[in-house]
Design a protein around this nucleic acid. Structure first.
Length: 581
RNA sequence: CGGGAUGUAGCUCAGCCUGGCUAGAGCGCCUGGUUUGGGACCAGGAAGUCGCAGGUUCAAAUCCUGUCAUCCCGACCA
């Protein structure tokens, strides 16, 4: 392609609306333009990169045994009603009624396709002989995000690869799950992304039923926990800590219990300010309603409670914050003054709570707190649990090393669904003995746009983007640096030979000064730059420079094309070396 | 949906507080010339319903009310 024949609107200045690096750089490099909040046009360069990522995804899915189909984005709302997801999605589901014939139809735009694909299978698969089956598509998804954000990191319309597998047994599901997991690792590695598979909140099956693939990035929306020593990685919601129950004993330094008047001072923050103390000296007493029974959960003042862990520790299903009436009933005080001393309900505590010597807690009396609260003397615990979110420096659950909290961009998710959709949409199979069973499912998603966004976010320097060869909008840019005949002819010749050799090459044929072309090439981040200039030509040399290198190498004009081909081949081998088997 | 900020040329912004000339600058764009290896220079030029609507006023980019849009924080996110 010739630069003068395509549309590459680069920008010198940073658009005021763009805050995160990927958004700024993709706009400046002329990859995308915004239409409205959460909707972006992919310009030629952005579209090329996206399509290359899409092609890699497709290749690996097919290699892993998935079969491509294409389902409609336009769907009947009825399917979502049947699975209960009309409620679950709420306003996120784009849906509207429209006249059709004499009646009115209620449509939805697909936010994902579990319903459509399960309906398809329900109608066309009835025997165990037809399973397992793994279907995928690469298609635009629509979600009415309450708040689109960060350029193309969170949009209301995005390209998703979604795969759905169907099985007669958990063993078969696990086999496909593993195959998808491996395919995902290969996809992200081939795209040149740093990625971390993390344990995510489990689905209905439990255990290791769900993994998210995260790209560590400062501006990622997700928080993940990672242990470098053991490789343990998990979503913050899910992450265990390696802490163990401490000895529960009253400290020798325990001071006398004292009640203080703290008028209208309810929150941890307010109490700390009022009593001039640190949050880690406080015990947060959260009153929950656990399967409709009140429970007090004790957490250190500076920690965050983790409701999933609380639910598991109590062995219950339904957990919600107690109402003010229930709180008044068990504590005798309004919200904000609960404490473990003399409380009238079951109490469970996080491991760190009994370690606080002379703690500060609510007094179970309006407008009062008590200080110098100590376990054993003032309240009792028989054991403790892991009930809070992990923090930096916690021990790893795998026994060695410490946890580190990092931000990540979610680029993929693999999930064991079980029979949830099969049951509600009546997808079942007959086994060898003519017994009917619901089909067991798995689902596997990749945000294709997010591959590009995550690359832009993490692979850049002060001059611009740095693309890996595999998804770069063009692999090579050829730059004639003067408007002189011999220079232009040499550039044209190298360009057409590279094209014939199958290289994805762009010729910067704009009548611009060298500086402008160099700045643009760096900003866009073409992996390899070929520069043809008057001085060099007189010596019979042209320049090759990788975006990742600081200095160019010079090669004879006659060897220009073969050198480029050789170096590209070498780079491809290098990039391939990072891809797991 | 709660809180905050911003809307003036394709981009970045000034002007607004304290109303008053034909609404400005830099970049980009067009024409001509000089230049030509890291975002050149000179001369000339095109480009704006000052987000939109209403109000106050002799007079509104500027003041008031409403509204729309965008961005950020939070809530939400199968």
């Amino acid at each position: 392609m010739r630069w003068s024949k395509t549309l590459i609107p680069t920008m010198k200045e940073i658009p005021a609306d763009a805050e995160v690096p990927s958004h700024q750089l993709m706009l400046r490099a002329g990859l995308i333009r915004q239409l409205m909040a959460g909707s972006y046009t992919y310009l030629p360069l952005g579209w090329k990169a996206l399509r290359k990522a899409e092609a890699i995804v497709r290749e690996e899915m097919e290699a892993a045994g998935a079969i491509e189909i294409h389902m409609p984005a336009l769907q009947p709302i009825d399917l979502f009603v049947r699975t209960g997801r009309r409620e679950a999605f709420g306003n996120v589901l784009f849906n509207w009624k429209q006249r059709r014939g004499n009646g009115e139809s209620h449509f939805a735009l697909g936010p994902t396709h579990e319903e459509v694909v399960t309906d398809l299978i329900a109608k066309h698969v009835s025997s165990y002989r037809q399973l397992p089956l793994n279907l995928f598509q690469i298609q635009t998804k629509f979600r009415n995000e309450e708040r689109p954000r960060f350029g193309i990191l969170r949009t209301s319309e995005f390209l998703m690869k979604d795969a759905y597998s169907f099985h007669t047994s958990l063993e078969s599901l696990n086999e496909t799950y593993q195959a998808m997991y491996r395919a995902y690792c290969r996809i992200f590695a081939r795209c040149g992304l740093e990625y971390l598979p993390v344990e995510a909140e489990s689905g209905p099956i439990g255990g290791d039923a769900s993994h998210e693939f995260m790209c560590p990035a400062n501006n990622g929306e997700d928080r993940i926990v990672h242990c470098r020593a053991t490789g343990y990685a998990a979503n913050l919601e899910r992450a265990d800590t390696g802490r163990t129950p401490p000895a529960i004993a009253t400290s020798a330094d325990a001071k006398p219990l004292t009640k203080l008047h703290t008028p209208n001072v309810g929150s941890i923050e307010a109490v700390c300010k009022f009593l001039k103390c640190k949050p880690e000296k406080m015990v947060k007493t959260l009153i929950y309603s656990a399967d409709d029974k009140p429970v007090a959960v004790l957490i250190r003042g500076d920690h965050e409670a983790n409701e999933g862990k609380i639910r598991r520790a109590l062995g219950i299903k339904k957990l919600e914050m107690a109402t003010p009436e229930v709180i008044l009933q068990v504590t005798g005080a309004p919200v904000g003054f609960a404490g473990p001393v003399g409380i009238k309900c079951e109490v469970i505590a996080d491991h760190d709570v009994p370690l606080i010597v002379n703690a500060i807690t609510g007094a179970n009396e309006g407008d009062h707190h008590i200080v110098n609260v100590n376990v054993g003397r003032d309240y009792s615990l028989t054991t403790t649990h892991d009930l809070r979110n992990a923090i930096d420096g916690d021990p790893s659950p795998r026994g060695e090393g410490t946890l580190e909290l990092v931000h990540g961009i979610e680029i993929g998710h693999v999930f064991k669904l079980g029979t949830k959709y099969a049951v509600s949409l009546e997808a079942s199979f007959s086994d060898e003995k003519e017994q009917r069973h619901p089909i067991i499912m798995g689902c596997y998603g990749i945000g294709v746009n997010r591959i590009i966004a995550a690359l832009a976010e993490t692979k850049n320097d002060a001059n611009g983007l740095i693309w890996p060869l595999a998804v770069a909008p063009y692999e090579v840019v050829v730059i004639p640096v003067q408007e002189e005949q011999p220079v232009l002819e040499a550039a044209e010749s190298i360009y057409s030979q590279l094209r014939q050799a199958g290289v994805d090459v762009l010729l910067d044929d704009r009548p611009q000064r060298a500086g402008v072309k160099f700045k643009d090439a760096d900003l866009i981040g073409f992996p390899l730059r070929v520069v043809i200039g008057g001085k060099g030509l007189q010596e019979g040399l042209i320049e090759l420079k990788w975006r990742t290198d600081t200095a160019p190498t010079k090669v004879p004009v006659a060897e220009a094309v073969s050198s480029v081909l050789k170096q590209l081949a070498e780079r491809r081998v290098q990039e391939a070396a990072t891809v797991p088997a």
